[in-house]
Design a binder for these strands. Structure first.
Length: 416
RNA sequence: GGAGAGGUGGCCGAGUGGUUGAAGGCGCACGCUUGGAAAGCGUGUAAACGGGAAACCGUUUCGAGGGUUCGAAUCCCUCUCUCUCCGCCA
């Protein structure tokens, strides 16, 4: 969410920068809503002031007058609430602005490849996709999963299930011990306002799973990413500056409807309704956002370096970034069967955009100011596993376990 | 699931219809005091929104929302969270 005073003052700059994000801001509409709202607010306050003075006296001769003013106030304030709501409806769906060094473009075609790492392996035999690999002993079982839960679910078995668990523990250990992230085991169901805080609501309601609790007015949602809970750990609070930066890591299942992608990636584990992800979140002073983004990116890269999987870093264009982001680097791993790179991580700085939605502040010299928030996958487990299985496959159908992972795999050298 | 008790400022805690944004304390900041510190004394100490170049002014906020009243932290209703006891359960 943007600072409305700043928006008001620099309306045309915002219009231009929002259009870089594929958002068309109707400036006239905004101006009208805002002016109208402020007019109502000031009228209301004037009446309230009058009423305040009358209420302080016990003079009965004023009671009638006071009552009339109360009625007027109540009418005005209903109007004002409606106008505020209209204004909010517009304000709440404005995406964050891109930083100046973000390439301008309307979609992923304008993304910029920053650097590629590792060597893409040549296979001397006909390579298998992860779905084909999973057919062996039915260790990656889509059929049973769909019987139980429908499409876009999977059941992992035996050493493949172990591999998933191993990757999670491997990543958590690195982030907690080497990079000083605090491990969190969070709830997977959150309230509506928490989803609003990080920007999943109201705009992306269709991609969220809503949970019904009986006898409750509160809407609850399954988290689509641990970013939601980890970032909201500081919601509605004022953090002491000397506690910053805060760094959190969690491994959680993530739940997504994938509503807009019916025909896309229907085969395999690439796009599931439920998948594990190890998520990194940093809470910093806003001035440190870019420095922290670089640090976070290097934490995520470390995982792939240790697993010896080829990958590339991509700087997303203004049109391809997520709603709350001001700058995003994607990490994409090599998927041999598709002969292309696929996203396993998205590291974003959100500046104060989310903090403003959450009411998350820190004490600074100039009083309480909004924090900076960052989030990044470190990494998405399902896709990482796909990449590992495919890149490390051998002619005999076995999968070589990278050295760094062996101790997490009961010291196995290979999955036979 | 049943019964009860609660939610007040950064924290603790008074306050049961009328200048209460809110006593008192702690904490914090500044000043005095001191060789220096502690103690002591004094002063100050919320946020959001609106107006203003600023000083500053106005409105709102005592878990959230609604109601009663000329007037609500205080009375009523709904929701929410915390705690205690009982029951049930991984």
């Amino acid at each position: 969410m943007h600072n409305i005073k700043d928006l008001r003052k620099n309306l045309n700059i915002y219009k231009k920068k929002l259009s870089d994000r594929n958002f068309h801001l109707k400036t006239e509409l905004f101006k009208n809503l805002d002016d109208h709202n402020r007019k109502l607010v000031s009228e209301k306050e004037k009446l309230e002031q009058e009423k305040g003075i009358l209420s302080k006296s016990k003079d009965q001769s004023n009671f009638d007058k006071s009552k009339k003013i109360s009625e007027q106030i109540s009418k005005l304030s209903k109007e004002q609430i409606i106008s505020q709501k209209k204004l909010n409806d517009l304000l709440f769906i404005l995406p964050n602005l891109a930083q100046d060094d973000v390439p301008i473009g309307k979609d992923e075609k304008s993304n910029k490849i920053i650097k590629q790492y590792g060597k893409i392996k040549e296979f001397s035999f006909k390579l298998k996709s992860h779905t084909e690999i999973g057919l062996k002993d039915n260790n990656i079982d889509f059929e049973t999963a769909s019987k139980l839960s429908g499409s876009r679910f999977v059941i992992l078995k035996n050493k493949i299930a172990l591999l998933e668990r191993a990757l999670i523990n491997f990543m958590l250990d690195i982030h907690t011990t080497k990079f000083e992230y605090t491990e969190i085991s969070p709830p997977l169901i959150v309230n509506e306002d928490v989803m609003f805080g990080t920007g999943q609501l109201p705009k992306f309601k269709d991609d969220q799973f809503e949970i019904n609790f009986e006898n409750s007015d509160q809407r609850k949602y399954l988290i689509p990413t641990a970013e939601v809970v980890l970032t909201n750990l500081v919601r509605k609070s004022v953090i002491n500056k000397n506690l910053l930066p805060l760094r959190f890591v969690a491994s959680t299942p993530c739940f997504r409807k994938e509503a807009g992608s019916y025909g896309k990636d229907t085969k395999g584990m690439i796009r599931q309704h439920q998948f594990y992800k190890v998520e990194l979140v940093s809470i910093v002073e806003p001035k440190d956002c870019n420095k922290e983004l670089d640090r976070m990116l290097s934490c995520a890269k470390e995982i792939l370096n240790k697993l010896e999987i080829p990958y590339q870093i991509v700087l997303l264009s203004s049109g391809d970034m997520g709603f709350s982001s001001e700058k995003t680097y994607d990490i994409e791993v090599w998927i041999p069967s598709e002969n292309k790179y696929r996203e396993v991580s998205s590291c974003s700085s959100c500046g104060s955009f989310q903090a403003r939605r959450m009411g998350a502040k820190y004490k600074s010299q100039n009083g309480n100011e909004f924090l900076g928030t960052l989030n990044g996958s470190g990494l998405a487990v399902g896709r990482l596993m796909i990449s590992l299985l495919e890149n490390n496959q051998n002619k005999d159908g076995s999968i070589t376990i990278p050295n760094a992972l062996k101790k997490y795999m009961n010291n196995l050298d290979k999955i036979e």
